[in-house]
Design a protein around this nucleic acid. Structure first.
Lengths: 223, 223
DNA sequence: CCTCCTTGAGCCATTATTGAACCAATTTGG
DNA sequence: CCAAATTGGTTCAATAATGGCTCAAGGAGG
């Protein structure tokens, strides 16, 4: 028997909620019934339901039951939830808008030590023959470019995209799209970006980043 | 058995992590299970997991388990929380990146009825002399442009920005920057955007939106 | 020979789950 | 209107799972 049953129940409940299982009257079965159904103690179900209540998915009333919260489509939570369904094509389009701009900002705004940390990520990535390690430092390279763009909002948007890309539907796609040859290509393109940053040339940095993202897009979407 | 068993396990774990094996709930098996599976002592697994924890790939909690750092659901909340502190200057910079692109997309992708709904928002805004009413339809105009860009992710990013801009520090700023003269200016600029959309001219739409945002920026930041 | 890593074992501190009981608010049915 | 049933809220002790830590013995490589 695995542990952390509550977390698994949260996932299962989320699945059922989004599948519309209880959308009719918006009422969820009593905790005691759910406990029976999942074969766990009521306390465990209570913990799971509590988490869903905390993040605003459910509302509980003593003596009445537990209900789906009426979703405010303009709440931050709802917006982020909808973002989780973002398609790779849509996201690549936004990356092509934001990352070249971030590179351009970085060329003018970055401190020398920040640029060194970008170079460090680049070199570590190039030295990695192991795919997951390369992937990690590749992501780190892009992240550090955003970090020295000196626009905190831009940086956080990139964080958001990074989290979204770490959700399960993306894994298969990344796995399919990587190869040794492409790793070498990426290293060369990163080098061009880094060179432009070092030379403090915003336009060259923007251009180099755009070229790189077009390569990534081709590999990812097979265009 | 050669030495450096722990390093090999690090590589194997990285592989599995990047293949998405534990992406669903972000939890990796207990150290004791991994030790059994790899046929090594628990101490060795601990060393490997320790390395991955050190470089930020994993997070460990006594009594709970070991988790992928990137799928930590709190990290999404943390990102959004940090976004709430976004400065007007940073956001204007991003708006100037995204909204002209959205207008350009809209010029090519929008359906006729979508364009009509943009025009409707525009006309209602122009007819409003009351500041909160104008404000509402002004925001609605921009939102509808994003809505017909046919990029859901872009649309949600704009929703996010809209919510952030509706928080208190922004309210004062908007109130200060508003005047009858500016309202008329905005109406004219919106008209130019709408005309470009109606003529299905992406470049003109991008340009008109950029000009408008530069006006907004000047008024908002006093530059 | 010395150093570092692995092994296997044991114990600790923290956390999660269980099962139970009782309370408080609400609904249901007579 | 009242009583019973239903439902979430709270607490508690016992058990199990999990990472944190230490130690002694064995082994591989310099």
């Amino acid at each position: 028997m695995p542990r952390l049953v509550a977390a698994d129940i949260v996932i299962e409940l989320r699945k059922r909620i989004s599948s519309g299982e209880w959308a009719e009257n918006g009422r969820i079965p009593p905790e005691r019934d759910l406990a029976d159904e999942f074969g766990v103690a009521r306390n465990t179900v209570r913990r799971a339901v509590g988490l869903l209540e905390q993040d605003g998915t459910l509302v509980r009333h003593v003596g009445r039951g537990t209900f789906l919260a009426t979703v405010d489509p303009n709440s931050l939570g709802a917006v982020v939830a909808r973002m989780e369904g973002t398609s790779p094509a849509d996201m690549m389009e936004i990356r092509k808008l934001l990352e070249p701009a971030a590179a351009s900002f970085a060329a003018t705004n970055a401190s020398t030590s920040e640029l060194n940390s970008v170079r460090e990520a680049h070199e570590t990535a190039c030295d990695s023959t192991d795919m997951p390690v390369f992937e990690h430092w590749d992501a780190e390279f892009h992240h550090r470019v955003f970090a020295c763009s000196r626009n905190d909002f831009l940086k956080e948007i990139h964080n958001l995209m990074r989290i979204l890309r770490n959700q399960s539907p993306w894994f298969e796609m990344k796995k399919r799209s990587f190869s040794e040859e492409r790793r070498v290509t990426y290293c060369g393109e990163h080098q061009a970006i880094l060179d432009a940053l070092m030379q403090r040339d915003p336009d060259a940095a923007r251009q180099a980043m755009l070229i790189h993202l077009q390569t990534v897009e081709r590999n990812l979407l097979g265009r």
